[in-house]
Amino acid sequence: MKKLTLNSMLISLAVVLSYAERFIPLDLIVPLPGIKLGFANIVTMFALFFLGIPSAITVTVLRCLLASLLFGGMSSLLYSLSGAFFALNVMILLKLGYNKFFSLLGISMGGAAAHNTGQIIMASLMMRNTAIFSYLPFLLLTGLGTGLITAVITVNLFRIIEKTNSV
């Protein structure tokens, strides 16, 4: 029961974060399709580290579904699901080496790169045109920056949670 409540809270938090980051339009500075901060990934990483893989999958899929229903559309659902699917898989794999080989920094950056790759693959499938891949190098590089930002936020969040022992 506690887990169900926590999962639901995380889904709504992720939806709010996806909405909130629309007010920080990175594409004003760098006009690349699909560029964003990826704050929802903070929630995914939290679910992955504190609640386990099934929770992380549930939260991610439902977050994409809800966010698209509320302020996206059918195409935005396909983009966010493909990005999230790639990111989650890569982060689950990288987490196997957590503390030994990788910190949250690498996991977050790897997740961002996977997210961008997934979205570009989906975009090229939907537009039936591979020209869009020429944006991927720039998205990968900006992903290093956004991955760093989400990693710093997530580490601080984890620190607070561990201090108060509230999960």
Partner: peptide
């Protein structure tokens, strides 16, 4: 908990940069 990068993090960063530059 600190944000202490591990060796693997640098491998990931390097891999992303190299991939991006090669693709560009």
């Amino acid at each position: 908990m600190q944000l202490k990068p591990r060796a693997g993090d640098y491998v990931i960063i390097a891999a992303i940069i190299i991939t991006a530059v090669l693709m560009a």
